[in-house]
Write a protein that binds this DNA or RNA. Structure first.
Lengths: 121, 121
DNA sequence: CAGTATCCATTAAGATACTG
DNA sequence: CAGTATCTTAATGGATACTG
């Protein structure tokens, strides 16, 4: 029943990390409304903050920032700040982040198939 | 930007179905705190309500009921009621539900690896 | 046994304005 | 451009009691 980052603020999905279940751990790391969506947009290379925002329909700057910070803290995304004016920041997948690629690909394929089965046009 | 089941009550994760993204669709179907956990406990066959409850640490009856209903409505889980006293209800994966097995297996393996990397004992 | 119903607490998400 | 800060709303989760 051990939890991590207890009582932290602005920490998404952290309350239910129970260290004896790997699936729960993973859901904590990449579950939720936005994370896989952010990650899959980074599949083909680096993107800037604004590029991510415009690619991910309906995400607010606040949500994008919060989730990117978490993904960065968890070593799934790498953030690079360029010392330029105006500022330029790029995000990319880390090696462990890239290992998730087959997961969102399969999940996406499953969704397409499930939708075709249950919600035919 | 089309949504489904708008304004429904007690419908988890339904607000953000945008029909032109399969990944978002899948996340809606099996995302969230509990669904994959419920499903992976059904991987090896049928289970009764009480068995699921005791296998899934910390889940309340209410949450288990709500999520099982959704999974049933979405054709991912099959519910069988036996006409007995006391009541007996069994849950099992459907075919489309079984197609998710590799996803939680991979996700679980990823979690184990990620944890070993970032949180060594 | 397998749930419902009710009420309440916590958390995630969204809108908007502002800044280095 | 890439964020913060603040406030508000919506969604999720939990406790407890009760029932066919």
């Amino acid at each position: 029943m051990a939890k991590i980052k207890e009582n932290s603020t602005n920490n998404l999905n952290r309350k239910y990390i129970i260290t004896d279940c790997n699936l729960t751990y993973s859901i904590c790391m990449v579950g939720g409304r936005w994370k896989l969506l952010i990650l899959c947009n980074l599949e083909n290379g680096k993107l800037r903050f604004g590029e991510l925002r415009s690619k991910i329909c309906n995400i607010t700057e606040r949500m994008l920032t919060l989730h990117l910070r978490e993904l960065e803290n968890d070593g799934i995304v790498k953030r690079t700040v360029y010392a330029e004016v105006p500022p330029k920041v790029e995000y990319e997948l880390t090696d462990i982040g890239r290992e998730l690629i087959p997961i969102w690909e399969q999940l996406s394929n499953w969704g397409e198939k499930h939708r075709a089965m249950t919600r035919p046009e």
